[in-house]
């Protein structure tokens, strides 16, 4: 493996859910890559397939869902070809996941130290219990938990919500993973706690070269955190590129709609742009471009599903009516 191999490269990932009402293509041909120390924001609304993308990478999709195609290359190894044991070795070790609800990670009937020591020793039995405890204490300190020695002996219910999420993050950091997938980890938290966690995430990626995929619906969080961004709609990536490029020159009507509907400083007292209609059901997607029924620019050309185009280096777009002349912007 050379240095410029991305930490994670996802190619044409397809995850389908086989329900009794038909096949829902929750992830439909998603591709992206994340390099060492890079932070990618994966943005979308409920049902866009952003969380399922994260679960698919880790092999956590349960029936009736199934990964039916594509490649997930982690440091060159295709995760989809690994058996359960191979995946288990990687999960919690080289790849970690942080969930929206920290109680997905934490066991309510075990003390925090038991859980943390187990995490260390499951992947490296040669580490002594004392050493694992010391590492756990350091990890708690790293995420800003005061008096970590005492807190190690506590149970999850003795922590506040923000603290619990920090414990879950500390567990994710324990084995210094090369990749972290974070699924809406701050959505349920207060702004000041969110600030603390974003701060830790940023520091981690800078200091240790961990690659991070931050899944969220909150564009403002991504703006402050990520290096690049992928926008998903109805199971597909509709726009992708460097953060500033996409936020400053959004080309897809959906991205533009999302950005326009974020309230804040510049919208005070004005009407927000609103995308008409709502997200279509994956079982009843319109033919052609999935966004066309809500799109102000849709016409005959949108009846055929648009292919991914790469108008400029590092930018991907799935739209036949880009709203910005990207080549013009680049030059």
């Amino acid at each position: 493996m050379t240095d410029d191999t991305p930490t994670l490269q996802v190619e044409n990932l397809e995850t389908h859910f086989f329900t009794k009402d038909g096949v829902a293509k929750a992830v439909d041909g998603v591709s992206f890559s994340v390099g060492r120390g890079e932070i990618m924001g994966l943005v979308g609304e409920s049902g866009s397939g952003k969380s399922v993308t994260g679960f698919s990478i880790l092999g956590l999709v349960d029936p009736p869902g199934k990964v039916v195609g594509g490649k997930v290359l982690f440091q060159g190894t295709d995760l989809l070809s690994l058996d359960d044991e191979g995946l288990r070795r990687l999960r919690g070790n080289r790849i970690a996941m942080i969930f929206q609800d920290p109680m997905m990670t934490l066991n309510p009937v075990l003390r925090v130290d038991t859980q943390m020591i187990e995490t260390v020793r499951a992947h490296d039995p040669s580490v002594s219990v004392d050493e694992a405890r010391a590492r756990s204490r350091d990890a708690l300190g790293q995420v800003g938990i005061p008096s970590p020695d005492e807190r190690l002996r506590a149970y999850p219910h003795q922590f506040s919500g923000g603290m619990r999420q920090r414990v879950a993050i500390a567990i994710a950091l324990l084995n210094k993973p090369d990749l972290i997938i974070a699924d809406e980890p701050t959505t349920a938290l207060d702004v000041t706690i969110q600030g603390q966690i974003l701060y830790e995430a940023q520091k981690l990626c800078r200091d240790t070269g961990t690659a991070l995929i931050w899944i969220t619906h909150d564009l403002a969080v991504i703006a402050g955190l990520a290096d690049k961004i992928s926008v998903m709609y109805a199971g597909r990536i509709v726009e992708q590129g460097a953060l500033d490029e996409v936020l400053d020159h959004p080309a897809h009507p959906y991205t533009r709609g999302l950005l326009g509907s974020v309230p804040g400083h510049n919208t005070r007292g004005k009407r927000l742009y609103q995308i008409p209609g709502m997200t279509p059901s994956l079982l009843k997607l319109p033919k052609g471009c999935a966004f066309k029924d809500r799109c102000p620019h849709a016409d005959q050309a949108c009846e055929d599903a648009p292919e991914i185009t790469r108008p400029v280096e590092g930018r991907a777009l799935r739209c036949v009516h880009p709203q910005v002349d990207l080549a013009g912007v680049a030059s």
């Binding site: 000041t192 703006a223 500033d244 950005l259």
Partner: peptide
């Protein structure tokens, strides 16, 4: 002031978060 400082905004990129110390 501290609360406002933590609010993520679309126009602020690569923000250096400086968390408020401690918990509520």
């Amino acid at each position: 002031q501290a609360l406002l400082n933590e609010v993520p905004r679309l126009d602020v990129r690569g923000f250096d978060y400086q968390p408020i110390a401690g918990e509520i």
